[in-house]
Simulated scan of single mutants.
Amino acid sequence: MTYLVVLAFVAILGSLASALYFMMKDGQDGKPKTSNMARALAFRVGFSILLFVCILLAWKFGYIQPTGIPLSK
């Protein structure tokens, strides 16, 4: 499970970095911006949702247990 979370974070950061690259590259030479940046950001959102759903499923099937913060009295 840890490897899946780390891999998802790397994918999220990679797509965010590619969106930054396309944002800086496109439009400098007078050409209109392409949809590459929007596509990279859409992948980032998709990876984030996939990570959230995987964590919920892992909790539901008992692979991970929430520990929480103990309440003080």
Rank of each mutant, 00 (worst) to 15 (best):
S35A: 14
K73G: 14
L20I: 08
V53S: 04
G68W: 02
K60L: 10
S35T: 14
F52I: 12
A8W: 01
L4A: 13
S72P: 11
T34G: 14
L7K: 04
F43L: 14
A58K: 03
T34C: 02
M23K: 15
F43A: 10
G27N: 09
P32F: 08
G27V: 10
L7Y: 02
K33T: 15
P66T: 00
Q28P: 00
V6W: 01
T2N: 11
L20A: 07
T34W: 03
L7E: 06
A38Y: 02
R44H: 12
K31S: 12
T2W: 10
S72V: 15
A19G: 08
P70K: 10
Y21N: 13
R39S: 14
S18H: 12
L41N: 08
L51W: 03
N36G: 04
G27P: 05
K31D: 13
M37A: 13
N36H: 13
Y63Q: 09
K60C: 02
L41P: 01
I55V: 14
M23R: 15
L20M: 07
Y63D: 11
G27E: 13
L7A: 09
P66Q: 12
D29R: 10
L71W: 09
N36S: 12
P70N: 04
F52H: 01
K25R: 15
V53A: 10
A8K: 03
L50P: 03
S18F: 15
W59Y: 13
S18M: 15
M37R: 06
A58P: 01
F22T: 02
S35K: 14
Y63V: 07
L56H: 06
V10T: 09
G14W: 04
G14Y: 01
T34A: 06
P66N: 08
V10E: 12
S48R: 05
T2H: 10
I69R: 13
A38E: 14
G68R: 04
T67C: 00
Y3F: 07
L56V: 04
L20H: 04
S35F: 14
K60M: 05
S35L: 15
G68E: 04
K33I: 15
L7C: 03
L20E: 07
Q28T: 04
G68A: 03
Y63N: 05
F43Q: 13
M23S: 10
V5H: 02
I64S: 02
D26M: 03
Y63M: 11
A19F: 02
S18W: 15
G46T: 11
L16H: 12
V10M: 09
Y21D: 06
A17R: 13
G68H: 00
S18Y: 15
N36R: 07
M23P: 00
A42R: 14
K60I: 00
I64E: 01
G62K: 08
L13V: 09
F22L: 02
D26Q: 09
L50G: 04
D29K: 07
S72M: 13
A58C: 07
L4I: 08
R39P: 00
L51G: 01
G27C: 07
F43Y: 13
L13M: 11
V45D: 05
L50T: 06
G30P: 02
F43D: 10
T2Q: 13
G62Y: 05
F52R: 04
A58H: 06
W59G: 03
D29Q: 07
P32A: 12
T67M: 07
G30Q: 04
Q65I: 09
M37S: 08
L71I: 13
I12N: 02
